[in-house]
Design a protein around this nucleic acid. Structure first.
Lengths: 359, 359
DNA sequence: GGACGCTAGCGAAACGGTTCGGCCAGATGC
DNA sequence: GCATCTGGCCGAACCGTTTCGCTAGCGTCC
C-alpha cells in the first residue's frame, strides 16, 4: 500500500492508492439458467426449494450459482411477491439513549424474524415524521414500528391502513393501530408518591409536550397522587420542557428561580433530567440537598449523572420485543385482527437524587 | 374505545377492539393512468418531472394521484433503475453507546443525502457479519458502511467489489475499500504519555482483539510511548478483554490480583473501562486512589461512571459524516476512484479517573 | 396546398425474479 | 398396442415502474 498523495481535511489525513471499480455486474437468474443449461423456472425452484428437481439438474444449478456468485435480487423477488422483507422503525430522538436502546433491541428482534431494519429519526418533528411515513409507504416496508411525535388529530383517520403498524411508547388514544405503551399514569404516580413519602409537599414538574400520551399521562399521575393526599402542584411550578435538554434547562432555571421554589421536581424524561440537574448546579443549588429530582423513562446511568437519578424505568427491551411480535403476527397471518393494546408497568428505581425534605 | 377482553402477559395488560384490515391495495401507476385517462408514461413523466406535459393533462394526473393516494413503488422503480436508495450500516456492537452515536450520526447523514438507512449489528461475530454482507448484496443496497469485525485475512480478496463500501473505525490493512479510521497508535500513545507524566511506570493494559486495528494499534502506541522512556509493560499485565465488558471485568480482576499489580491500566475502549471499574471496586480497591484507569474511544458520560474517565475521544460524528460523504461520492459519480483512506486524530480528555502515582 | 419539422403523448420492452399451466417422455393398465 | 396417468421441466405471463422509439397532429414555409 504505497502512499501516492496526501491531503488534509480538518484534522485528518488522506491517502490514495490503486483503483477500485464496481463494474462487475451481479449475475442474474438468467445467467445461472444459461450456465446450467436449464430454465429460469428450474433455477428458481432450486433456490427456493419449491419443487422437486432431479439431483443431476440440481447439482448443475448449484454449481452455476457458486461459480457466478449468484444471489437473487431481493428487489425483483419482492416486486413479484409484493413484500420487501423490510421493517421500519421510526424513533422520536435517536440521540436519546432511551431510543438507542430501543433501536438495539429492535435490530435484534427484526433480524431474528428474518427481516431487515430500516431506521428513521423523526427528531420529535411532526413534519419529519410525515415525510418518514410517506417514505415507509413507498419503500414498501412490510411493517412499521413508530414512536409517534404528533398529536392524535394530526393523523388522518386511516393513516396506518396501508402498512401494518405498531405504535410504540406513545399512544394516539384512538384505535387506528396496535399499540405498546408504558403506563405513564402509574409512572407519574409512583414517582410522586415516593417524593411525597419523603415529605415533599411543594413538588414541581417539567413535563413533556401535552399532546403526547407520555406528556399528559405522567403529569396526570402526579396530580392524582398529590390529590390523594389533599395536595396540588402550584401552576407556576408545572411547565413543559418539550422532552429536550436545553428546554428543560431553561424551564428548570425559571421554576427554581421563583421565590417559593418547589423542594422537589418530577422531570418527565431522562434527557430533561440532565438539563434540570445542570440548571440546579448552575443556579448554585445542589441535588438532592436543596432540590430533589426524580424522573421517568431514564435508562440506567444516562449522562454520567453524579447523583444517580431516582426514576421509573421502562422495560424497553420487553416493550420492543412485544411490538415486533405483534407486528410480525399481523404481517404474516394476514387475517384482520382487531387492534391490540399492550401496556407495560414501569418500575421505580431509587437512586441518590432525592432526599427527605429539609427542616 | 371500549375494552372487550383482557389478557395478561408478563406484567402487561392487553385490550382489543374493532378490526383493522390491510385489504386496501396501494394504487399503482396504471390505476392513476386509467383514472386520468392518460398512459402510464405520462404519469411517470409528471411524477418524475422528466418531460413536458401539458397543463391540462398534468392537472388531471395530479388530481388522480391525490384521489388515489398514489405513491410510486420504490421496489418497482428501483428494479427498473437498478438502485435501491438504501445505504447499509453494520456496526460491531449496537449496545455500545459509541456505536449508538455512530448510528445517530449516520441516520442523519443518510437521510440528508436522500437515502434510507438499513441497520445491522454484527455483534463482533465474523459469522454474523458474513451473513450481513450477503444480505446487503441481495437487498441491493446502493452502498454500505461497515465496522469490520474480522481479521483482514477472513475476507475474500474482492469481498467489497459488488457494493460500494466504506470501512469505518477499523481498517483491514489492505486496499480493498475506502477507509475512515482514527489514529489508534496516537490514541494509545497520548493516554500512556499522560499516565507516564503522572509518574506511573507500572502500566497494564486491557486490549481489544489483536486481529483488529483498534486492538493492536492502541497497544502499539502504548508500548512505543513507554519505550520512549525506557520502559516496557510487564507481559502478564497486558491481556485482551475482547471489547466486552464481562471479559474486561475478569481480566481486570486477574491483572489487579497479581502480587505486583500495575498502578495504572490503559483500557482500550469504553465498555471495557466500565468492566474494569467494576472489578477495581469489587476487589476492594478504589479508582483513582489505588489504580488509575484511562481509556480510549469512550463517549462522554458513558455508564454513569463516578470518577469520569480520562480518555481519548474519537470524533464519531465527523468520522461518520466523512464516511458517508465518501460513500455517496462513490455511488453517484460512478467513476472508479482509487480507494481512499482518511485518518482522524483522537483528542485526550482528562477526567478524574487518574491520579499521580502514590508514594 | 403539399412537404417538412416539431412535439405532446403513447405503446411496449425491459428490469429480475416467481409461478402456473402445459408439454413431453416414460410408466402403467387392459 | 393404445389410451391414460404421472412427474419433471419449460415457456411465458406477471409484478410496477422507466424509457426509448414512434405516431399523429399541428404550424410553417415555399
Amino acid at each position: 500500500m504505497q502512499q501516492k498523495s496526501c491531503w488534509t481535511w480538518r484534522n485528518c489525513c488522506f491517502k490514495v492508492s490503486e483503483t477500485i471499480s464496481y463494474g462487475v455486474l451481479l449475475a442474474t437468474i438468467k445467467d445461472v439458467a444459461k450456465a446450467a443449461g436449464v430454465s429460469t423456472a428450474t433455477v428458481s425452484a432450486v433456490v427456493n426449494d419449491t419443487a422437486y428437481v432431479s439431483p443431476d439438474l440440481r447439482a448443475r444449478v448449484l454449481s452455476a450459482i457458486r461459480d457466478l456468485r449468484y444471489s437473487p435480487s431481493l428487489v425483483a423477488r419482492n416486486l413479484r411477491r409484493g413484500r420487501s422483507q423490510l421493517i421500519a422503525l421510526a424513533v422520536a430522538d435517536l440521540a436519546n439513549p432511551f431510543y438507542a436502546r430501543m433501536v438495539s433491541s429492535a435490530e435484534a428482534a427484526v433480524a431474528a424474524w428474518g427481516y431487515s431494519l430500516v431506521l428513521f429519526n423523526s427528531d420529535e418533528k411532526p413534519e419529519t415524521e410525515r415525510r418518514i411515513l410517506a417514505r415507509i409507504r413507498t419503500l414498501g416496508c412490510d411493517g412499521a414500528v413508530i414512536v409517534p411525535v404528533g398529536a392524535a388529530d394530526q393523523y388522518r383517520h386511516h393513516e396506518f391502513d396501508d402498512v401494518p403498524t405498531v405504535l410504540l411508547g406513545r399512544s394516539l388514544g384512538g384505535d387506528q393501530a396496535d399499540t405498546v405503551t408504558v403506563d405513564n399514569f402509574s409512572a407519574g404516580r409512583q414517582v410522586t408518591n415516593y417524593l411525597l413519602d419523603l415529605g415533599h409537599t411543594h413538588i414541581g414538574s417539567i413535563t413533556g409536550p401535552m399532546q403526547l400520551s407520555t406528556g399528559h399521562g405522567r403529569l396526570e399521575g402526579m396530580i392524582e397522587a398529590m390529590a390523594a393526599r389533599g395536595l396540588a402542584p402550584q401552576p407556576s411550578h408545572v411547565r413543559s420542557g418539550e422532552f429536550r435538554e436545553d428546554a428543560a434547562y431553561s424551564v428548570a432555571r425559571d421554576i427554581l428561580g421563583q421565590p417559593n421554589r418547589p423542594t422537589a421536581l418530577y422531570v418527565a424524561n431522562g434527557v430533561m433530567a440532565i438539563g434540570a440537574m445542570r440548571a440546579v448546579s448552575d443556579i448554585g443549588l445542589s441535588c438532592p440537598q436543596d432540590v430533589s429530582i426524580a424522573s421517568t423513562d431514564t435508562i440506567s446511568g444516562v449522562g454520567g449523572l453524579k447523583p444517580r437519578l431516582t426514576r421509573t424505568e421502562h422495560p424497553v427491551a420487553d416493550m420492543t420485543n412485544a411490538a415486533l411480535r405483534m407486528l410480525v403476527e399481523r404481517i404474516e397471518k394476514k387475517v384482520s385482527v382487531p387492534p391490540r393494546h399492550i401496556t407495560f408497568q414501569p418500575a421505580l428505581v431509587v437512586g441518590e437524587s432525592c432526599a427527605p425534605v429539609a427542616r
